[in-house]
Computed example of a mutant assay.
Amino acid sequence: MRVEITDLAEKDLEQGYLFYEQQQFGLGTYFLDALYSDIDSLCFYGGIHLKLWGYHRLLSKHFPFAVYYSVAEDTVLVIAVLDCRRNPSWIRKKLKAL
């Protein structure tokens, strides 16, 4: 499968990078490496994850983030990359607005 990342999901990744980079120099880069690795795994495992609020949800292995995506034919479309520590109602509203 082919994986595509929306501009909004890229913005989510950028915000996560900035947050972790402020915590410790280099941690933001590690965050991006880990999340892109998780997203790359969707080439093989896209569509097997639990559906929540209309999207499949992949939980990151190293950070408290979730990758929300949809599958159409042979393409995985990453819609959002959100912090799981946020209020669930905030996450639901954000996903419904997409």
Rank of each mutant, 00 (worst) to 15 (best):
L18D: 14
G46Q: 01
K94P: 10
H62K: 15
R86V: 00
T75E: 13
E21W: 01
V76T: 02
M1Q: 04
V3H: 07
H49A: 09
K96L: 14
C43R: 12
F63E: 04
A34H: 12
I5Y: 02
V67F: 00
G47H: 11
D7A: 14
G47K: 08
L35E: 01
E21S: 11
L50M: 03
A34E: 08
G28R: 09
K93N: 15
Y17F: 15
L50D: 06
G16I: 07
W90T: 15
Y55M: 09
Y30C: 14
M1F: 05
L18H: 15
I48T: 13
Y45V: 13
H56A: 12
G16K: 09
W53F: 08
A80G: 09
I48R: 11
F31I: 04
L98C: 09
S41H: 05
C43F: 13
K94Y: 10
H62N: 09
Q22M: 15
S41W: 05
Q23M: 11
D83C: 09
Q23G: 06
D7Q: 15
V71E: 11
T6N: 10
V3G: 03
C84N: 15
Y30A: 12
G46W: 01
G16F: 01
E4A: 11
H56W: 05
V76I: 07
K61Q: 05
D83P: 06
S70Q: 12
V81T: 05
R92I: 02
W90V: 13
Y69T: 12
N87D: 00
F63V: 14
L98Y: 10
T6A: 11
P64N: 03
F25W: 08
L8D: 03
I91L: 04
D38P: 01
M1T: 00
R57D: 05
G16T: 11
F25H: 09
S70W: 07
L18M: 14
T6L: 13
F25I: 11
W53E: 00
R2A: 11
T6S: 14
G28P: 13
T6C: 10
W53I: 08
V67M: 04
K96W: 15
D12A: 08
L59R: 05
E73R: 07
K51E: 04
I79P: 02
W53T: 06
Y45D: 03
F65S: 06
Y20V: 02
A66C: 02
I91S: 01
Y30E: 15
Y68T: 09
D12P: 07
L18I: 09
E21H: 08
D38C: 02
D33Q: 14
Y20Q: 10
A80R: 00
K94M: 04
L98M: 04
N87L: 04
G54R: 03
Q15R: 14
L95A: 08
R86Q: 05
A72N: 03
F63N: 02
Y55P: 11
L27I: 13
T75S: 10
L52N: 01
C84S: 11
D83K: 02
L42G: 01
Q15V: 08
L98F: 10
S60E: 00
I39T: 12
S37R: 09
A72W: 02
Y30M: 10
T29A: 14
A97S: 14
C43Y: 12
D33L: 14
S60H: 06
R57T: 01
H49V: 07
V71C: 11
L35H: 06
F44H: 10
Y55I: 03
S37K: 05
H49C: 07
N87S: 07
L42P: 01
S70C: 10
L42N: 01
E4K: 04
R86E: 03
D12H: 06
Y30D: 14
Y69V: 09
